[in-house]
Computed example of a mutant assay.
Amino acid sequence: MLAGLLIDVDHLLATPIFNPNRCSIGFHPLHSSFAILFYFFLCIPKKSRLVGLGLVIHIVSDAVDCALM
């Protein structure tokens, strides 16, 4: 489940690193639509289900942040 927090490491590639008005969904590489689809597929096999669930929860919380901006 902690892997859900590790995908924020891609924020270090952005300039500036933190921008409160930027939506991370679709901007950062690990928040792209291809990556998000991969996270959903990780939820299917039993061995990767918790990792996938943590990543999907992270993406959902980022999407809520984007919707509230």
Rank of each mutant, 00 (worst) to 15 (best):
M1Y: 03
L2E: 15
L2N: 03
A3W: 12
G4I: 00
G4K: 02
L6K: 15
L6Y: 10
L6A: 14
I7V: 06
I7M: 08
I7A: 01
I7D: 00
I7E: 00
I7W: 01
I7K: 01
D8N: 07
D8K: 08
D8W: 03
V9L: 09
D10H: 08
D10L: 13
L12S: 04
L12C: 04
L13P: 04
L13N: 07
A14N: 08
A14I: 07
T15A: 11
T15M: 11
T15V: 10
T15K: 09
T15H: 11
P16R: 08
P16N: 09
P16G: 05
P16C: 05
P16K: 04
P16Q: 09
I17Y: 13
I17V: 14
I17W: 10
I17S: 12
F18H: 03
N19H: 10
N19D: 14
P20K: 04
P20F: 02
N21P: 02
R22C: 01
R22E: 00
C23Q: 01
S24L: 10
S24D: 15
I25A: 09
I25H: 02
G26V: 00
G26W: 01
G26F: 00
G26N: 04
F27W: 02
F27V: 02
F27T: 07
F27R: 09
H28N: 12
P29M: 06
P29T: 09
P29N: 10
P29H: 08
P29G: 14
L30W: 01
L30F: 06
L30V: 11
H31G: 01
H31N: 07
H31A: 04
S32V: 05
S32F: 01
S32G: 03
S33R: 11
S33I: 12
F34I: 11
A35R: 05
I36A: 14
I36G: 03
I36H: 13
I36R: 13
L37T: 13
F40T: 12
F40N: 15
F41I: 11
F41S: 07
F41Y: 06
F41R: 06
L42E: 05
C43V: 09
C43P: 07
C43R: 07
C43I: 05
C43K: 04
I44M: 06
P45T: 12
P45C: 08
K46T: 02
K46V: 02
K47Q: 06
K47R: 10
S48Y: 05
R49A: 08
R49Y: 02
L50H: 09
L50I: 02
L50D: 02
L50M: 10
V51K: 13
V51T: 12
V51I: 14
G52V: 04
G52R: 03
L53T: 09
G54W: 00
G54Y: 03
G54L: 00
L55V: 15
L55N: 14
L55H: 13
V56G: 11
V56M: 14
I57N: 03
I57F: 06
I57P: 02
I57L: 12
H58R: 08
H58F: 05
H58Q: 13
I59M: 08
I59V: 15
I59C: 14
I59F: 08
V60S: 02
S61P: 14
D62A: 15
D62C: 12
D62S: 15
D62Q: 15
D62H: 15
A63P: 04
C66S: 05
C66L: 01
A67W: 07
L68P: 06
L68I: 08
M69K: 06
